[in-house]
Design a protein around this nucleic acid. Structure first.
Lengths: 224, 224
DNA sequence: TGAATAGTGTCTTTCAGACAATATGCC
DNA sequence: GGCATATTGTCTGAAAGACACTATTCA
């Protein structure tokens, strides 16, 4: 054992939360990244996150970190996985509890705060090189999102309160990265009884307006 | 330590792993519990677990804890969820990364070691009152197991190397807690192409022996 | 009336689920 | 031969997937 080794200090790893915030913008699936202001990985983009405070649950820490760096509130949040390789952070032992968040892109007030110099959304098809093991976390989260799209109503998290069936179909197509048949999609969605129909849409185009819907429940629902 | 990082700024929680070890014995689904030797919850049964060591990954900590208290080695292990309510441990802040392990019941050398006075398997239908939030962890894990039975080959973890289709069906019936139709079950299982047929079974009974099978892969496979 | 998107139905194939008789080895 | 379990196929209903035309609004 090394001289000066202080077991009580090293036996307790730091615990952080890192959050994958997904949104859809301009027909693309995007995630929020922040640019690091400090070593290690200074200048590199990373997932928003930070250390868990003493009296704070993990969920609350994730919500707080999201709020600090994106102004986002009240969105869907789900714990993903906990990454704990002893060498994943070069400074010291840091265990990261990761979360996936979903939000409709509105006028979030992105802000650089504390230890980051910038915050920005990137298309998942064109990510920069990420700090730490955040690339791995991203892959894990994207797979979870794709998978859950198939057997839950998780897509509600990426849409505004009201939307058309075409909007909803586009969410599926963007995330699954493939085209879906309009008739089959509508048949399937409407038989789940998760949507409530509203009025008509005025829309902006020179074409027939679409019916608006909203999800009956804002919590996650498992179908099948 | 690198410049700009002051670990003492943060109150570091302790990080533990707790493991749900499932097995099947005497036609019942059982989990391993250990009896606590110390406060808090002295005398109460709890999931096997303990603190993560400084240079140890989370997975390795789970394997180590299992080995210490059950002698189990080389079994299926999967991270479940991380529980971090600030009050879940009355002593201090402890974040628990939980795991699910599956094993075929063989002659494991259960042993009380360290801070536990006994180790024993309990039927999931007849659990004692558990320490901490371990009842919640158990529920979460049992649901995960039931769910994954439907779309993966996870049952391989509960069977010995060789088994009959009836053995396999019983695993499903015990975990799902319902009877399955023999013909439909076999049809479904055999079309997945996950099994390899071997020779005949001598068995012990006065009846036709069954064909033995083994799983082609010992890793988890997702069907559909 | 033309442009653009919304909305709708049938057929085929596949999969899940109900259902019962024969086969084989051992005593 | 009798017992106990192994093994096997058909039918039906539901859901998934391929496929193309009509409807509506607005400029």
């Amino acid at each position: 054992m090394l001289k000066g080794y202080d077991a009580s200090k090293y036996d307790r790893p730091s615990v952080a939360v890192d959050v994958l915030l997904f949104t859809i913008e301009a027909g693309e699936l995007k995630i929020l990244l922040v640019q690091r202001n400090e070593e290690p990985f200074k200048g590199r983009w990373s997932l928003p996150g930070g250390f868990v405070k003493a009296d704070e649950s993990l969920d609350r820490a994730a919500i707080r970190e999201l709020g600090e760096e994106s102004g986002v509130e009240n969105i869907y949040l789900e714990q993903l996985y906990t990454f704990g390789d002893p060498k994943r952070d070069p400074r010291t032992r840091v265990i990261s509890v990761t979360y996936m968040a979903l939000g409709a892109k509105t006028d979030w007030g992105l802000k650089a705060s504390g230890d980051v110099s910038a915050a920005k959304f990137f298309s998942v098809d064109n990510l920069p090189k990420l700090a730490f093991d955040h690339q791995q976390i991203f892959h894990y989260g994207l797979e979870r999102l794709r998978s859950k799209l198939g057997y839950t109503n998780i897509a509600f998290g990426l849409l505004p309160e009201q939307f058309t069936l075409t909007d909803l179909q586009k969410v599926y197509e963007i995330i699954l990265n493939k085209q879906l048949d309009k008739r089959n999609f509508r048949k399937k969605i409407l038989t789940t009884d998760l949507l409530r129909s509203l009025g008509k849409k005025s829309s902006g185009g020179a074409h027939r307006p679409a019916e608006l819907y909203r999800f009956k429940k804002k919590e996650i629902v498992y179908t099948d």
